[in-house]
Simulated scan of single mutants.
Amino acid sequence: MIDTDRTATITAVIDSLADAWARGDADAYGAHFTEDATYVTFVGTCYQGRQDIADSHRALFAKFLKGTKLAHEVLDLRFLGSDAAVLTTRGDTVKGEHPKKLTKVQTYTLVREGDRWLVAAFHNTQRKSVMEGISFRFAPETRPKAQQ
């Protein structure tokens, strides 16, 4: 049975992250993470802690990511007991309209602290669809079961 209340709570956290990003509000963005969170970008940069995440995004929102929004869709959500969840999404950073293809895969590990869910770990991977297609063609057994 799907726990729709907890599912809605988790997806609301991700929607709130996206809202803070769209506003370019690094402090509000960082507030969604635990004090000791880890954050791995698609280029492999690893930030440690809420303050490091907020500070880096303050600079990113002022330069490279200025005026961008996050687009995301939930692929999977699993609860690991009552106080932890793992969320997998497809997503992308966009300017303007929602893209037809989301080119990244993200994993969020969330924990409940009091009455709030916070991101304890985030990992963002750039999807390489050409390499994925080659692998699936020449080694079909590498295709995830959900895609067969």
Rank of each mutant, 00 (worst) to 15 (best):
F33H: 08
E73Y: 01
D52K: 12
E35R: 07
L75H: 06
P140S: 11
A121P: 04
Y29W: 14
D27Q: 08
Q147I: 05
D25R: 01
R137Q: 14
A12P: 00
Q148S: 14
A22I: 10
D5R: 11
Y29D: 00
G96W: 12
K100D: 15
S56T: 12
H123C: 11
V111Y: 03
L70P: 00
T89Q: 02
Y108D: 05
F64H: 10
L118E: 08
N124S: 15
V94F: 07
T7G: 02
Y47M: 10
A22K: 07
V74Q: 13
I14P: 01
E141F: 05
T38E: 06
A28H: 12
A18F: 05
T88Q: 14
M131R: 02
K63D: 15
Y47A: 03
S16I: 04
D19E: 14
G96E: 11
D83P: 05
D5M: 05
M131E: 13
R137S: 05
S135Q: 07
R78C: 02
A59L: 08
S82C: 03
D115R: 11
D36G: 10
E141T: 13
D83W: 04
R112L: 11
L65F: 06
V40I: 09
A18W: 08
N124M: 06
Q106K: 04
T107F: 08
Q147C: 09
L70D: 05
T109I: 14
R58D: 12
C46D: 00
H72S: 11
T68D: 05
D115V: 15
F42E: 08
D15L: 13
H98L: 05
A22V: 12
V94A: 14
I10K: 01
T38D: 11
V130C: 03
A12H: 03
T4F: 12
Q106R: 07
A121Y: 04
E73C: 04
W117Y: 01
K63M: 08
A71R: 08
L70V: 15
G24C: 07
Q48F: 03
V86L: 12
V40D: 01
A22Q: 13
T89C: 04
D25V: 07
Q48G: 00
D15W: 01
G91W: 13
Y39Q: 01
Q51Y: 04
F136M: 00
A31F: 06
T107D: 01
I10P: 00
L87M: 08
I2W: 01
F42P: 07
S135G: 08
M131P: 02
F42D: 03
A20T: 02
T7Q: 12
A31G: 14
V13E: 11
L65C: 02
M1H: 10
K145R: 06
E132F: 02
I14C: 00
R127S: 12
T89P: 01
